Simulated scan of single mutants.
Amino acid sequence: MVVVDPDFVRLMRRLRQEHGMSFRDLAKKAYFSRSYLCEVENGKKPPSLHLAKALDACLNAEGQLTRLVNTGPDDQEPESRSRSAATVDCPDRDVEAWRMRSTWSAQAGRTAPVSASQWAQVATMLYDVFVRSRPPLMRLGPVRYANSSVRQQHLTPFAVEATMQGRAPRVECRAVSRQQPPSDVAALLSLDLGDAVVLRENRYLADGEPVQLGHTYLPTCVVGTSTLATELDLSSGGTFAALERLGYRTARIREQVTTRFPTRGEAETLNLPPGVPVIVLLHASYDSDGFPFEATRYIMRSDAMAVQYVAKVAA
């Protein structure tokens, strides 16, 4: 839960005006969207702790804004907020949801089981009400690895792009193991047959909702016995900050995007509704010498995420 002092809005406006910054100027410097900053300053959206820290840095506020934002445990708030937004945006569908729930409850008291088609109707209705009405979280392609906030504020690329879009990010590392990589990953990393890697299995959440999985493969010659090979919690900056501390900085990336239907395990871990495919993005990072030091297979919910690429076209 985020608790914001009412003085935050007034202080943010005063500092921005004192520095002669427009919302466009501040957005470029803080790496948050202009519309999100405008909504925060006008009191339409609460600021996140990440935003407060970024504004303190951009506006030379020496922590004044950060001190006005307090966080506390409240795991139910993101879901409740999402459901409330869906209720406001989709009143007719909520009436239909109530009507269907009443019919379903009445049938539950009978001896006849609910048919498969009725289960499908309920699933479709819930999906329409709580998922379709929300915009997807945009994965910003190569830009996410060049964003200065990743290094200056010790944030992960996912945390930066989620926060820029007004979402609360969270990453859970669910397992760290040592094993042989799949053949396509071994080829990306230029590994010999039988070479082992460290596998880090992450789940990424936005506003408490799981939106993607990430299986990161790291050559043992890169991570050795560092925390990347032994610890679930990597503290600030995540995997890429830990790799940079070992001397591996991303200079070039290679990404391949495909789609398919999820496995049962993926569907359960991502809380996917029936019939929703996933976006599979196979990523590899290279240093300035062209050495591939990391590969990640991202499994993204196609109903909750989208991928955006912007590239220059040679004349």
Rank of each mutant, 00 (worst) to 15 (best):
E172C: 06
K312N: 09
Q121V: 00
Y286H: 03
E62H: 15
H154P: 06
L65M: 03
T216I: 11
D233Y: 12
R14G: 00
C90W: 04
A229T: 01
E79H: 02
M138E: 15
C90L: 09
K45I: 00
Y145L: 10
R170N: 13
G208S: 05
P219F: 06
A187N: 09
M1R: 13
L189N: 09
L243E: 09
V129H: 02
R139M: 15
P219V: 09
V9L: 11
Q179M: 14
Q180I: 11
L281N: 14
L37V: 05
L281R: 15
L282G: 01
S226A: 04
V88A: 14
V143K: 12
R67I: 01
D207F: 07
R134N: 04
W98L: 13
R264M: 02
A311L: 12
T225K: 14
T258F: 03
E161L: 08
V310K: 09
D75V: 05
A242M: 08
L49W: 05
R254K: 12
Q152P: 00
G20C: 06
P210I: 10
S82F: 12
P47E: 13
V129T: 00
V185N: 08
D5N: 14
F130G: 08
L65N: 02
Q308M: 10
S80M: 09
W104E: 04
K45A: 09
L218V: 01
K53R: 13
Q121N: 03
D56P: 00
A97C: 05
G265F: 11
V222K: 11
R101S: 10
L218P: 00
Q64G: 07
L272M: 07
M21D: 09
T156A: 11
L228Q: 07
D94V: 00
E77Q: 10
S288L: 01
D303G: 02
F8A: 01
V131G: 07
V88H: 15
Q212P: 00
Y204H: 14
L246P: 05
V150F: 12
V222A: 06
S82M: 13
P292A: 11
G238E: 06
G63I: 02
R252S: 12
Y286P: 03
P262Y: 09
P273L: 13
E268R: 12
Y31K: 07
R252N: 11
R200S: 04
